[in-house]
């Protein structure tokens, strides 16, 4: 049941009207190749690349997570075969406090960032639709800049904005009236406050960085979805005296549900794996309390002494979490489309 629906979805396209003949009766040509084999031949390079560079390493990572792989196993000269250690890598990880703080950081960060990104992005998407054509073009180009900045440069920029001495954030907080600042945050003088030393404040910076960089994609996607909704529906709602919020809730949101489902999945996948921005904000894998699972896996495997088996085990855990989350949403998505 599920399989057939995915096959149908995979074959369809917005611009292709349904019922397009799938199997065209082409005149038989005298080319040496059996037409039935053509798609397989076309797929060979892609399948080989994916098998060698994605599927095989995935399986290997799974195997390595049950092995002890350190310097004796990875050295160039006379490497020793890896020892099978069973579940030892996993039990050690579960006993490690850093794993639990990394898991918490990953989950909380993803939850907060995905929510904020979707809210801000949807708001800006709706705004873009309401603006005049010229204003909306200007705004799209503006937010495109935030979206285009490479993740490493994003980290660099926000590390600078949150700089303790010369950062704009502390400068702006100093502008607050002293009584307000004291009432809200318990301090009036912000000069020299180090944001990037504590795990908690690092994540505030990271959330701002990632939301800033990823809301434009949501906004532009929501705008594309809004444009696809026929205007008559809104006119009918207006005639019936529907309030803007009610219109959004009863027309816009249900029709954009598939778009939101996809945007949510993509955001979750991206935000679970955030690495570059955190790497820059933390100045490499230094502050262990501020690790997320990606950083923890990287640090275990590539900081001396390398514990590749343990790093692989963390990566496997991260992969499983991602697959569970995504499977859940993919099912939701298929369901919602079958209902319609």
């Amino acid at each position: 049941m599920t399989d057939t629906s995915i096959a149908r979805r995979g074959g369809g396209h917005a611009s292709a009207p349904s019922g397009r003949p799938r199997r065209s009766h082409r005149p038989q040509k005298a080319s040496g190749l059996n037409p039935k084999l053509i798609p397989y031949v076309l797929l060979i390079p892609g399948v080989l690349v994916m098998a060698a560079l994605l599927l095989y390493p995935m399986i290997q990572a799974g195997i390595m997570s049950f092995q002890k792989v350190g310097i004796p196993q990875i050295r160039d000269v006379n490497p020793r075969p890896a020892d099978w250690v069973g579940w030892e890598n996993y039990t050690k990880i579960f006993e490690n406090d850093i794993f639990w703080s990394a898991l918490r950081n990953t989950l909380v960060f993803a939850f907060v960032t995905v929510s904020l990104t979707l809210i801000v992005g949807t708001g800006v998407g709706v705004l873009l639709q309401q603006l005049s054509k010229r204003m909306s073009t200007v705004l799209i180009v503006g937010i495109m800049f935030a979206w285009a900045v490479p993740p490493v440069a994003q980290g660099v920029i926000w590390r600078w904005l949150f700089d303790a001495e010369a950062g704009i954030v502390n400068w702006a907080l100093n502008l607050l009236p002293d009584f307000l600042s004291t009432a809200l945050f318990g301090r009036a003088d912000w000069t020299g406050v180090p944001w990037l030393n504590e795990a908690y404040t690092v994540y505030i910076a990271l959330i701002m960085t990632v939301v800033w960089a990823s809301f434009p994609f949501i906004a532009v996607s929501v705008l594309a979805g809004l444009k696809s909704i026929p205007n008559e529906l809104y006119e009918a709602a207006r005639v019936d005296g529907s309030s803007p919020w009610r219109t959004f809730r009863t027309i816009t949101f249900p029709l954009l549900k598939p778009v939101f489902a996809v945007l949510t999945i993509l955001s979750i996948i991206w935000d679970f794996k955030v690495f570059s921005q955190l790497y820059v904000l933390l100045n490499g894998p230094t502050n262990r309390e501020a690790f997320n699972l990606s950083m923890f896996s990287y640090a275990e495997a590539f900081r001396p002494p390398p514990k590749m088996g343990s790093g692989a085990a963390i990566a496997v855990i991260l992969t499983i979490i991602l697959l569970i989350v995504t499977a859940f949403y993919v099912r939701q998505m298929i369901k919602s489309e079958e209902v319609q």
Binding site: A7, V47, F275, G311, A315, L318
Partner: peptide, 19 residues
């Protein structure tokens, strides 16, 4: 093939990094 395409996109780089 299409389902495989979807799944491999979700795999974190860290899982591929070590192998």
């Amino acid at each position: 093939f299409l389902i495989t395409l979807l799944i491999v996109q979700m795999v974190p780089a860290e899982a591929l990094l070590i192998p």
